[in-house]
Nucleic acid binder design. Sequence first.
DNA 1: CGAGGACTTGATACCGTTCAATACCGGTGG
DNA 2: CCACCGGTATTGAACGGTATCAAGTCCTCG
Lengths: 221, 221
Amino acid sequence: MRQIIDERTGGTVRPPCGAEPHSALHGPSHAPTMRIAAHVTVLHEGDPARRIMEVVDGAVMLSKLLPDGRRQVVELLGPGDVFGLAHADIYACSAETLTPATINTHDRSALERDPVLGARLLRRFEAQLCVMHSHALVLGRMSALERVAFFLLRLMPETMVGGTLHLSMTRQEIADFLGLTLETVSRAFSELKRRGLVVLQRADEVRIQDRGSMRRLAGAL
Amino acid sequence: MRQIIDERTGGTVRPPCGAEPHSALHGPSHAPTMRIAAHVTVLHEGDPARRIMEVVDGAVMLSKLLPDGRRQVVELLGPGDVFGLAHADIYACSAETLTPATINTHDRSALERDPVLGARLLRRFEAQLCVMHSHALVLGRMSALERVAFFLLRLMPETMVGGTLHLSMTRQEIADFLGLTLETVSRAFSELKRRGLVVLQRADEVRIQDRGSMRRLAGAL
DNA sequence: CGAGGACTTGATACCGTTCAATACCGGTGG
DNA sequence: CCACCGGTATTGAACGGTATCAAGTCCTCG
């Protein structure tokens, strides 16, 4: 059995589990904005789906569980990304903050009425669907080393060239995202380090040393 | 090296490769409907993305390639599903018909103007995104046998209980969808047959014998 | 009847998992 | 300040599932 839901609530209130997280800190009742600590589960897979959420700031991780406890992190979200999707009025994924996050929520009924919101979500869904397509390629066809290289490139935007990337995920979370075990992820990091493609200041601080080789490994992201 | 694009054009014209498939058989020029034979590549990954397509009838497969030829089938589409998505005005996937298909195309610019179309696409994108989430779970965390069981259940709707399912995909295509090799897919079919969960009239005609066991294998679809 | 393609099955190799031991890091209390 | 502790990460050894390589079979079509 595996530890699934991390309850290191960073000191902030947790929204009323699975029901309506209506803590209106800012904004009107139909689109409240919430400030949430890191490592808080915002949504539970299987709960009734009443709201759609938008990440304003911070990072959120969506995951799904198999009955026997195997977990897959299906999406990593940043500012602008949308979650709280549903099949048959049931949330399809759990959502957990990776960092402190600001989240905007909309009532699903508002979706029908607000065409501006609809247009924004449409663009965002298209982008997220494209990312999922790439991720299917990663999960279905790439080796462990390639997956980790891809992961790091994805987290390190072109802009920040020489910067140090802070990973806000544990090896286990990265493994669940990449369809590997934490040991294999760790070995892959060590191998990338050994080859001189990355430098690990600490376990959660990476600097990409040789971006060209990384790209080649990741199949040209 | 692998055979990637299947050119068994079933006798029908192939739309002008990658450019605007404007064969207006039915409907006005801004939303032409095309009738396309089986095994025709409608869209090429990397081509400029001008249009959004909707499957009216038939089955379409979306796939992505790695530089070295490895392929992943990222989505299987049926009536109502949408494809032709893009990052940076470039098609993110290739699209190939699995059966004869009827496809509706919309100019991307029409998307901005037509809120009814937008609302329909939004609902559909949400559904497809949910399916991709499940697929990530399949690719990242399931064994070969589980993947094939999941695949068959997904293709066999609840309604058709005792019916025979006709697979319009080769073992290679199924393998590329499930992140396996064709040999492993074949072995999985044989194993399901051996266990009495399915009956194979022919290689491409399956009957699900024991739906309960299949569900258990697939992790309750 | 023969040819080609798709599928099945077998033998072996390899990559990633599993199990286990050890190292590291931050925090707490002596 | 240091010893200790819990959680996380790294590393090693053995195992196993899937890929790979290679026949051989079945089906369809000419």
